[in-house]
Design a protein around this nucleic acid. Structure first.
Length: 308
DNA sequence: TATGGGACCTGCGAGC
DNA sequence: TGCTCGCAGGTCCCAT
């Protein structure tokens, strides 16, 4: 499932293969792809064709391509969210269509297409203006951090917090806002307005590294525990990034169609019944938030006042 | 306003 | 062999 490391791998691939090229045509092959582009697919196409892809930028799980005119004037940004099963692929123009091909962008140079493939159609594309926001620092992680567009965010991303790998992430602010919440730690991690880029896999792995139970009340989290949680997130995400991301099946691949191999390094996620690599207790799986939560009963004991 | 639960969606595997 | 059902989970929407 694409979380921050997987989206960053894709972003790097898009930056390498697509930035600097002019969009000749865009096609949307499924109505759900543009459901978040309120003006409809025709408008999204009109706002894309003839423009140059100026950069590939990411914040959390959101990826966007700032567009520019041939003269270099900034235009809209094409925002892509991979959802659960979305893939951005760079394919030879004559390559056969993938089974779940949802969108295709062709370029003036006639070289490789950019394709959006999405089995479960939770992902999508929108072409939107870049706006200023007041989060104390704008933009996201892209190839050109000093470019004019890096000072702005696409509107659908404006409410998303910075992610743990962002150099401008404020650890003290995270710890303070965590304590202000009245929920459990894992719910807070999955709430993209506190810290972004965290999904079910890396939430479980970070909580295991910090030796914290997922249902521990956020109000009880000390500064040291908040720091341990951030350290766990950074450790597991950095390692996953180095491994090319986590792939359990063909649902996550990079732009060249290759899977990552970090799933071999997971400590608890998907490891139910196996020994915890730290204490040897058997990893357990709980139903939580309409999904699964994996934890070690030895390292991550249930707190006296759990927030389920 | 903050929080939590359900819906959306499709393919796979288990069980019958 | 074929059918049904549960599961996977990111985000949005709605109820409380």
């Amino acid at each position: 499932m694409p979380e921050l490391p997987e989206v960053e791998v894709v972003r790097r691939g898009v930056a390498r293969w697509v930035v600097g090229r002019t969009v000749r045509s865009a096609r949307f092959l499924h109505p759900r792809v543009t459901r978040r582009h309120v003006a409809g697919p025709e408008d999204a196409i009109a706002r894309t064709e003839g423009l140059v892809v100026a950069d590939a930028v990411r914040r959390g799980k959101y990826l966007w391509l700032p567009l520019a005119t041939a003269d270099g004037d900034a235009a809209d940004a094409m925002v892509v969210h991979l959802g659960m099963s979305g893939q951005l692929l760079v394919e030879a123009a004559k390559a056969p269509a993938e089974k779940h091909l949802r969108a295709v962008w062709e370029f003036d140079d006639g070289r490789e297409d950019l394709r959006f493939v999405d089995q479960r159609t939770f992902g999508g594309v929108a072409v939107v203006p870049l706006v200023g926001v007041g989060d104390g620092g704008l933009g996201g992680l892209g190839e050109f951090p000093d470019a004019p567009w890096s000072r702005f965010l696409p509107a659908p991303v404006a409410h998303i917090a910075r992610d743990p790998l962002d150099p401008a992430f404020d650890d003290a602010l995270f710890a303070r806002r965590l304590r202000e919440k009245t929920t459990g730690l894992k719910r807070a991690l999955l709430d993209q307005t506190l810290v972004s880029g965290v999904g079910n896999i890396y939430a479980d792995e970070a909580l295991w590294r910090a030796k914290l139970h997922y249902a521990r009340p956020t109000r009880s989290a000390t500064r040291a525990q908040a720091d341990a949680l951030l350290a766990g997130l950074r450790e597991v995400m950095t390692a996953a990034l180095a491994a090319g991301g986590t792939s359990f099946d063909s649902l996550y691949v990079n732009v060249n169609g290759a899977s990552g191999y970090f799933d071999r390094s997971l400590a608890v996620y998907g490891q139910v019944g196996r020994a915890c690599p730290r204490c040897g207790s058997l990893v357990r799986r709980d139903a939580f938030m309409n999904r699964s939560s994996f934890s070690c009963p030895g390292c991550q004991p249930v707190p006296r006042t759990a927030h389920w």
